[in-house]
Amino acid sequence: MTILSVNTLTKKFGGLTAVSDVDFEVQPGEILGIIGPNGAGKTTLFNMLAGSMQPTSGTVHLKGQNITGMRADRIARLGVARTFQITSLFPALSAHDNVRAATYRTKKTGWMASIFRTATYRAEEADVDRDAMAALHFCDLAGHADDNAESLSYGDQRRLEIAIALAAKPALLLLDEPAAGMNPEEGQRLVNMIRKIRDNGTSVLLVEHHMRVVMGVCDRVVVLDHGEKIAEGTPAAVVDNPDVIRVYLGREAVSA
């Protein structure tokens, strides 16, 4: 079944149409890239999909369920996790606690059970720890488990964001420019990570400027410009598209 289906999605800010009649679908096990120049509407599109912004019109369906305009936390509970373009963590908490907090969606025992330390509670807390360590391991952060998030290097922080999103065990993961500010080596590590995420059964929607990352990892790419979808297809087909070349003209990024 189609994981995500977006139909004529539109967002207007007063006179500015940031996203205009955009359609696309994400299939299970697919990595879909969304590219486009600055201000193309990529983040706005993400915010609408994740529920942190209300669309002006159009619909979003998650596994057949209409989630258009739903609150962010409800969409998250349905299995969508996201990262933010501007690093967003729990800065004062340890990396381990950052990820532990993210297991919220997949667990259910509450406060009362913790007061009486029931068997269910203890079993679930052990799960929380295990899930959190697994997510840290996956993102090469196990060695930093006890470090405060704010004390991590920039690249580590960006990978911690992904670990947080993964600890929520999403069916669909939205990544907003995860490679921004990373050096080539870190970018390559990220590409491998995104592939592994997909191989573990999570579909990925990836907004990215780094063409190297997009080309290396995406199954298909949607190109936005001024809020409109101007092309869609395999990475190889998209870079040869004259409209895309025009939009990116003068940017060495395309050929990189």
Partner: peptide, 9 residues
Amino acid sequence: QLAASLGVD
């Protein structure tokens, strides 16, 4: 904002 994105109401 991050809490909400993780399913916390």
